[in-house]
Design a protein around this nucleic acid. Structure first.
Ligand SMILES: [Mn+2]
Ligand SMILES: [Mn+2]
Length: 553
DNA sequence: AGATTTGTGG
DNA sequence: TTCACACGTTCGT
DNA sequence: GAACGTGTGTCTCCACAAATCTGG
């Protein structure tokens, strides 16, 4: 992409200093004495050394070769490294293990460094060469010494990496955003809606909340690493430790519950049902209770399974959960000697289509075939309705309620997908729904499209949904239908943002449209798709399932 | 040698 | 370092 | 039909270079 904005040569340091100022103002009181000392030490460094430190911190290390560290804006690298070392902001390597060798040196360098011990041209890949070096069983000092001729400079790592991570965590409130957000916005790659920040309410109430978040994050990393290494034995142990945690701060509960669910699911596959159950019991996030029922059923614990089913049906966390319980309950009751209950089957409007196989997806082939009967057919899945929803409720989504906007780089409020999103904005949403019902969506939504275009929002997809499609959809879909769809999205934004049909077919007159879910041979409706189809049925929204088979079979 | 993956920086 | 979807297999009714 | 596992495209950017892999 062509560069349109000129950034200062040390833009990254400016960004980091901005982050520091913000965090210090908001959370300065939560930092420990040691952490404040590191910050102070950093600020006392020379300008160029500060630049170097931030450059290193933002690259993938942890180790760096001096010869691979070169920046136009940093004059005397040698002096800067000395300064970092002297101030305990970096340290030199004293020996390297084979894995570190792997990421520091090229295959060719390693080959020639170990030419004396290992035959040349014998290893088909770098991984094989590394494995061979590992079997030499050299000390880490010896390993580093061997590479001395490949690297004339020093090998160093920046220190206090965890503290820098802490600063970013305090700024963003999560681990997946970082300093790159700043530059992406600065050069115009991403744009965020200028909602007003309400910094009265802090995400982390106290230091304990921060520590708890980081503890959960460490567990998540352990889980991830164990899966990557296929270290199955580690999972039950990890599960038992995780179940002992007493997580209580709102800022980490959601992540804790998700982690419990993910790990417990893995433990189920290993038939570690006891640990899995205890993790699910700690989780307040779907599908924790559903999974508990399934484990109880698998164990033949019919009575407990039935009791939990009834509890779910009575007070469900979401529709999917209630549906699962209704599906399982008759099975369990039959085992308990109960009566056979018949469940009514879904009767969706269906349609069949025979077309030849092609080089594109079944959805695109079906769309092409249908375009003979319709003015236009679009393959949109969730994108269209989600975009329309975002446009319709933009101002309500970005309402500056306390504690929902922590920094300027959010695509929606913190509680967007939490229970109570609608309740907390009840009056505003109510008023907006009335405006939409009584106004013309085909005017309002294209207007909104132009006004908010390219601002990042969890709902809108500016790339795939253009203004014309928004206009056409709103002209052909009756207001009442769209508002009915919006109501359901408002009811449970998390659960209902998916499951929309693949295609929308548009005619030429208002009301002349259809939502079409394409199903190829062997495919079946998913639960979320069924829920939307049932709702469309109740609301009189035209939708159908198109079963495709290949003519050449 | 060409294709693919990874790291980097703005 | 996910999420939503399609696709393939197995099992029980 | 129900439940489960797995593969795929896509992640809030894109250009460029270096390193590595691949297959002949
Ligand atoms: Mn689909
Ligand atoms: Mn489909």
């Amino acid at each position: 992409m062509k560069q349109t904005v000129e950034l200062a040569a040390h833009y990254y340091l400016d960004n980091f200093l901005r982050l520091c100022r913000t965090v210090d103002a908001r959370y300065g009181d939560l930092l420990t004495g040691d952490e404040r000392a590191v910050l102070e030490c950093f600020h006392k460094l020379s300008f160029d050394s500060q630049c170097l430190y931030i450059r290193l911190i933002s690259r993938t290390g942890p180790w760096f070769r001096e010869s691979k560290v070169q920046y136009r804006e940093i004059d005397s690298l040698d002096t800067c490294i000395d300064e970092l070392l002297a101030n305990n902001m970096a340290m030199l390597a004293e020996g390297l293990d084979t894995e570190e060798l792997n990421s520091l040196f090229t295959r060719a360098e390693l080959q020639s460094a170990f030419a004396a011990q290992l035959p040349k041209d014998k290893y088909g890949s770098k991984a094989a060469l590394i494995a061979a070096i590992d079997t030499l069983d050299l000390t880490s000092a010896a390993l580093q010494k061997n590479l001395g001729s490949s690297e004339p400079g020093r090998i160093l790592t920046p220190l206090h990496f965890e503290f820098i991570e802490l600063l970013q965590l305090l700024f963003f409130g999560n681990r997946h955003q970082s300093l790159t957000e700043f530059v992406l916005e600065d050069i115009g790659i991403t744009r965020y809606f200028p909602y007003s920040l309400n910094r009265e309410e802090r995400l982390f109430k106290n230091r304990a909340a921060v520590d708890e978040y980081q503890l959960c994050a460490a567990f998540a990393d352990e889980h991830y690493d164990a899966l990557a290494l296929e270290d199955w034995d580690a999972l039950p142990r990890l599960g038992r430790r995780l179940a002992k945690l007493n997580v209580q701060h709102g800022s980490s509960l959601r992540r804790y519950h998700s982690l419990c669910n993910r790990l417990a699911r893995d433990l189920e596959r290993m038939e570690e049902f006891g640990v899995a159950l205890s993790l699910y019991r700690h989780s307040e996030r779907h599908p924790a209770r559903e999974r508990q029922v399934r484990i109880l059923e698998k164990r033949g614990d019919w009575k407990k399974a039935k009791r939990l089913c009834l509890q779910i049906i009575e007070t469900p966390w979401c529709e999917a959960e209630q549906e699962a319980a209704r599906r399982i309950l008759p099975r369990v009751e039959r085992k308990l000697g109960g009566s056979a209950t018949t469940r009514r089957r879904d009767q969706f409007k269906t349609c069949a289509l025979s077309i030849p196989r092609g080089d594109r997806s079944v959805e695109r082939l079906a769309a092409q075939s249908l375009s003979q009967d319709w003015h236009t057919v679009h393959y949109v899945e969730n994108r269209l309705m989600n975009t329309l929803f975002g446009l319709a409720f933009w101002e309500e989504i970005f309402m500056p309620l306390p504690g929902v906007f922590h920094h300027p780089y959010q695509g929606g409020p913190a509680d967007m997908f939490e229970q109570g999103f609608r309740e907390r904005r009840a009056a505003a949403i109510e008023a907006r729904v009335n405006v939409l019902l009584n106004g013309s969506l085909s005017v309002l939504l294209p207007q909104a499209y132009r006004r908010y275009q390219s601002n990042f929002c969890h709902w809108t997809d500016w790339r795939h949904i253009d203004e014309q499609l928004v206009r056409d959809s709103c002209q052909l879909i009756p207001n009442a239908h769209l508002v009915a769809i919006f109501e359901r999205l408002l009811f449970d934004p998390r659960e209902n943002r998916s499951g929309f049909p693949d295609l929308i077919a548009l005619g030429k007159q208002p009301g002349d449209y259809r939502l079409i879910e394409v199903k190829g041979p062997g495919d079946a409706l998913q639960d979320g798709q069924k829920r939307w189809l049932r709702y469309f049925d109740r609301q009189g929204i035209p939708a159908e399932v198109l079963w495709v088979n290949w003519t050449d079979d």
